[in-house]
């Protein structure tokens, strides 16, 4: 009897497997998401929160693997070289849109298959409290004293640097950019009055702004920040500035469209899990679902906005 049951089970599982092969079932083994940064950072938190519900919607475990180094290039390179079968994916940073042009990444967005966008965080123009009351104030001072205002950012050629430059160009002012080794030291320098402003994300300055130490003059997204509904966007103030960092998910170039769809549909549901929503809210990160096509458009638009800025800042190395 027992043998019989075992035989039936074996037979049935064979039929199922065969059926799976016949349909080209995907996925049948664990999916790996490479985070090209250290464990414990913002990107890592997004990936892990997403992966937790992976088994529920994809039927296979979704594993997060940290592969830091080379400003993200080491982990991303692994994905570029991986087989485009949908089992090796990565959280793609906004920098993929321009760091190939500045000679840092040997690859760009074109070397990946986008799946969808997960999160966007706009830059925010933040100053020491009491120094400037409004963006108009800031711009007026900058016009009267060209190059005197020093704006800190998280590293030359990174998005927050370009955000400051996009704003300066649009406002017709000249600023001096001070690169720091990440957003945190730039914020510390602003608190200590070493510099005049920072253009890092709203989430990064949140604690200080809530405490009244720093003042956020404007955010640079297309809508106001959820945590700061009273702060206007630069668009509202009449400056055509829209610079946000975004984290999306993608795989190597040449990922078959049917697999992209399967992954997209599952990830979309995973993004709606309360656990994912809460985790991002706690980290102060903005959830921003965009479909495959919209994600691609966002990446292309950003690259188009930033291209002239790179030339202006003298950062263009690879044409």
């Amino acid at each position: 009897m027992r043998k019989c049951i075992a035989g039936i089970i074996v037979l049935m599982s064979m039929i199922f497997t065969l059926g799976a092969f016949a349909q080209g079932k995907f996925p049948t083994k664990p999916i790996k998401i490479i985070v090209p940064w250290n464990a414990g950072g913002g990107t890592d938190a997004v990936a892990r929160a997403l992966a937790r519900s992976g088994e529920k919607y994809l039927g296979v475990p979704v594993v997060v693997e940290n592969k830091p180094g080379g400003s993200g290039a080491v982990g991303l390179a692994e994905v570029v070289q991986a087989a485009p079968d949908g089992y090796t994916l990565a959280i793609l940073p906004v920098e993929l849109g321009f760091m190939d042009k500045t000679g840092v990444y040997p690859f760009g967005f074109k070397d990946f298959t986008p799946i969808m966008n997960l999160n966007t965080d706009p830059a925010a123009l933040t100053v020491k409290s009491g120094k400037f009351k409004s963006v108009a104030d800031f711009v007026a001072y900058a016009k009267a004293n060209p190059g005197k205002l020093k704006v800190g950012h998280s590293g030359t050629g990174l998005l927050w640097h370009l955000a400051a430059a996009v704003f300066a160009k649009e406002a017709g002012i000249s600023l001096t950019y001070v690169p720091f080794d990440g957003a945190a030291p730039a914020i510390a320098a602003l608190i200590g009055n070493q510099i005049d402003a920072v253009t890092v994300s709203g989430a990064e300055v949140q604690a200080q702004v809530k405490a009244g130490e720093l003042t956020m003059l404007a955010c640079m997204g297309d809508k106001r920040l959820a945590n700061f509904p009273e702060i206007p966007t630069l668009m509202e103030l009449g400056y055509n500035v829209n610079v946000s960092t975004f984290r999306g998910i993608g795989g190597p170039k040449g990922l078959p469209a049917d697999r992209v769809k399967i992954l997209h549909d599952a990830f979309k549901k995973m993004m709606e899990e309360p656990d994912f929503v809460q985790t991002l809210a706690k980290m102060g990160l903005g959830i921003d679902y965009r479909s495959t096509a919209d994600y691609k458009k966002l990446a292309d638009d950003t690259a188009a906005t930033l291209a002239p800025i790179l030339t202006e800042l003298g950062l263009l190395r690879n044409k």
């Binding site: 604690a207 200080q208 809530k210 405490a211 130490e213 706690k282 980290m283």
Partner: peptide, 9 residues
């Protein structure tokens, strides 16, 4: 932050 605490003043 994941614990729901915002370090700062």
């Amino acid at each position: 932050m994941l614990l729901g605490l915002q370090p700062g003043p």
